[in-house]
């Protein structure tokens, strides 16, 4: 059961990511990203992280991607054009990506022998467990994130405001 679920949603995630790359229109890419994120939410659940799965759906697939789609629609960017502005991206970047993948994969494969298995019966990290740590040990960082988000909101407003002459 676990294996099946993992394979299905891993496949979804990969396919979504691939689609993100292949689509020419930003709105299609955004929708593909939502697929990826939703699949990841399921995978989080499989790994026993129920709170994160919910947060993933609400924060990422919900809030952030809605923001993305809004912006895409707002700016009304059409299909992206093929431009060749970066020589380095082709000559340096892609070999680097291949090397990156090779290194990561080989490292994971070498180290993975020592790791255990993941199964449905592993038990779940409950929201209660999480909140106990979050609100007790890490209360201050948690509160600081709220300040961070507040500042981000202010920044976003300041940046995106229509330039009415005085900014």
């Amino acid at each position: 059961m676990h294996l099946v679920l993992f394979l299905i949603f891993a496949l979804f995630a990969l396919a979504g990511a691939a689609n993100l790359l292949l689509q020419k229109h930003p709105i299609n890419s955004a929708l593909s990203l939502i697929v990826v994120m939703s699949s990841l939410a399921v995978l989080y659940l499989l790994l026993g992280a129920e709170f994160l799965a919910m947060a993933q759906v609400i924060v990422y697939a919900g809030a952030i991607m809605v923001l993305f789609t809004f912006v895409v629609m707002l700016l009304n960017e059409g299909r992206e054009e093929k431009t060749w502005g970066s020589h380095a991206a082709r000559v340096v970047g892609f070999p680097a990506v291949v090397a990156l993948l090779a290194v990561l994969a080989s490292a994971i494969l070498r180290a993975g022998r020592h790791y255990g298995m993941v199964s449905l019966s592993d038990g779940i990290t409950t929201t209660q467990d999480l909140s106990r740590v979050l609100f007790r040990d890490l209360l201050l960082p948690f509160e600081l994130t709220s300040v961070l988000i507040l500042i981000a909101i202010l920044g976003a407003v300041a940046l995106a405001r229509k330039d009415d002459g005085n900014a």
């Binding site: 380095a88 000559v91 340096v92 970047g93 892609f94 990506v97």
Partner: peptide
């Protein structure tokens, strides 16, 4: 994108 390429190269 060029910057990103060098960044990726550095990470690799």
């Amino acid at each position: 994108r060029s910057y990103a390429a060098w960044l990726a190269a550095g990470a690799a």
